[in-house]
Nucleic acid binder design. Structure first.
Ligand SMILES: NC(=O)c1ccc[n+]([C@@H]2O[C@H](COP(=O)([O-])OP(=O)(O)OC[C@H]3O[C@@H](n4cnc5c(N)ncnc54)[C@H](O)[C@@H]3O)[C@@H](O)[C@H]2O)c1
Ligand SMILES: NC(=O)c1ccc[n+]([C@@H]2O[C@H](COP(=O)([O-])OP(=O)(O)OC[C@H]3O[C@@H](n4cnc5c(N)ncnc54)[C@H](O)[C@@H]3O)[C@@H](O)[C@H]2O)c1
Lengths: 241, 241
DNA sequence: CGCGATTTGTGCACGAGTTCACAAGCGCTT
DNA sequence: AAGCGCTTGTGAACTCGTGCACAAATCGCG
């Protein structure tokens, strides 16, 4: 869930590449298309049909075509999309032409796993700094980076041009950490702590909560088991994110 | 991606509480309400207004009331909702009255963190078994559970009535693992591997992909930085260049 | 016992997102 | 050069979700 500007004032008409005002739902799918495209590129294909790409990304092909049309991307009728070109277009749209620096706060159980995660680097991001409040952890080297004390956040963030922060602290500390991140100039936050963050306008927050995902699955389990005793009902399939 | 029962007449047979056909968006928010309610209960409050609960859960109060009305929950006008009662109602709806057994497959970097996560237990789930394909890891005790070899999955799943599986293996192995889970009777899967899973009808899959979350944030960063460079109108070059 | 303060539940209008279905465009073949 | 099969791009209908605004319900109090 992210915070949202109320219909941003984007009425402009410059000669700029013009950021198309993409539907949020489309934005959320672009990364999936991108991953699928990289996979396809690795298998040697240089073009892909909307049908094929849609299957690889797990979506409906009409939806995929509409999504791509939103960002003005041109495929070739009768042929499909040029894989390399499309990758470039999506990466540009997502702002991945520059590798973005990320700060990770809270190097505990989860933080350790994240700090060592290779998928970060391979998909456009660079963990630029690790922070923790626990002095016992400060100085510990993880994956080539030393854990720093949270008090250094502002300094380091400025030095490394960090605009994205990841919170992996206990929920009780998350709001304080978020405030510190915002104060340090961070404008996008990914929050793993199970709590609601309050941030100023202009700062985006996304949240990942494992328990919530499981509880949603639990609901469907509950429903499925109730249905098996009822006639006429048939089971269902996947659930979107 | 999403699913729909073909207009289930919802013919309630006996005197059973009757499953209301909740909108998917509502289902996705119920866990958040539940978490907020537990938090509120801890602070000693026994009733809460829709306004208060909505704030705690980070949503609009009208939306919250509509969500709750869907599951037939009755608050008291002029007063608010009974916290304890509402917790029970939501937990029942989500199928959390029984503690659900979960199998975790892939005890690597991320899997370790998940296996040690307390939030699992405190929110209605029980990690019933850990699996890995790496013989070197088999037998390792984590948090009171021994890692078992993936070949034991079917046996253990049946014995422990496991209906939910979590995949924390590399993407290359995820589809095989998913197949194995399904074969073992699992009907809900939470997938941390960055890939699309194909599963038979009747099996629910939810996916958590850290890189996707970051890329969505990146998009908004991109957009924000483009906007600040042209506040009024004059636009030369916005990005990159 | 009635009145005002409060808060729920919901009808309704609007907007976002999805899906269908098909014309238009492209390349290959004859 | 014309025809044919394939695939994109998109108008339009439709479904789903959101939020306003207000009537109905309840409580506390004088
Ligand atoms: N472990 C998991 O698998 C998992 C899964 C989902 C969500 N989460 C959530 O992620 C968060 C972290 O979980 P964990 O298991 O790693 O916990 P943890 O206790 O192992 O680690 C938390 C870390 O945050 C640090 N910290 C505490 N307060 C801080 C502050 N003010 N500033 C900076 N650092 C601070 C602690 O020193 C510690 O190192 C929790 O909110 C948890 O609910 C964890
Ligand atoms: N580490 C993270 O923070 C993080 C974050 C987001 C997503 N992920 C994703 O989660 C997955 C796991 O990441 P990780 O860092 O823990 O990787 P990892 O390599 O540390 O662990 C993977 C584990 O899976 C086991 N495994 C491999 N094939 C298996 C099979 N067929 N059956 C059972 N077990 C098998 C391996 O033995 C290993 O123990 C990856 O897909 C990764 O992209 C990781």
């Amino acid at each position: 869930m992210s915070q949202h500007r109320p219909t941003g004032p984007n009425g402009r008409s410059g000669g700029v590449p013009a950021l198309p005002d993409l539907p949020e739902a489309t934005v959320a799918r672009l990364p999936e298309y991108l991953r699928a495209l990289h996979h396809i590129a690795e298998t040697g294909n240089d073009t892909i049909s909307s049908e094929g790409l849609a299957a690889a990304a797990g979506v409906n092909s009409a939806k995929l075509r509409k999504d791509l049309s939103h960002l003005g991307s041109y495929g070739t009728r009768g042929v499909g999309y040029d894989v390399a070109l499309l990758i470039d277009q999506i990466e540009f749209t997502l702002g991945l032409t520059q590798r973005r620096a990320v700060a990770l706060v809270g190097v505990g159980n989860l933080g350790h796993a994240l700090a060592g995660y290779a998928g970060f680097a391979s998909r456009g991001f660079r963990i630029a700094a690790l922070f923790d409040a626990d002095q016992a952890r400060v100085g510990e080297p993880i994956n080539g980076l030393d854990v720093r004390h949270i008090s250094e956040l502002a300094t380091v963030a400025a030095a490394e041009s960090i605009a994205i922060g990841v919170i992996a602290t206990p929920a009780a500390a998350a709001q304080d950490v978020a405030d510190a991140l915002v104060a340090a100039g961070v404008t996008s936050i990914l929050n793993f702590a199970p709590c609601v963050l309050s941030v100023p306008e202009g700062v985006d927050v996304r949240k990942v909560d494992l328990a919530i995902e499981l509880q949603i699955l639990s609901f469907h389990e509950h429903r499925k088991s109730a249905l098996t005793s009822l006639p006429g009902g048939l089971a269902e399939e996947a659930v979107g994110t």
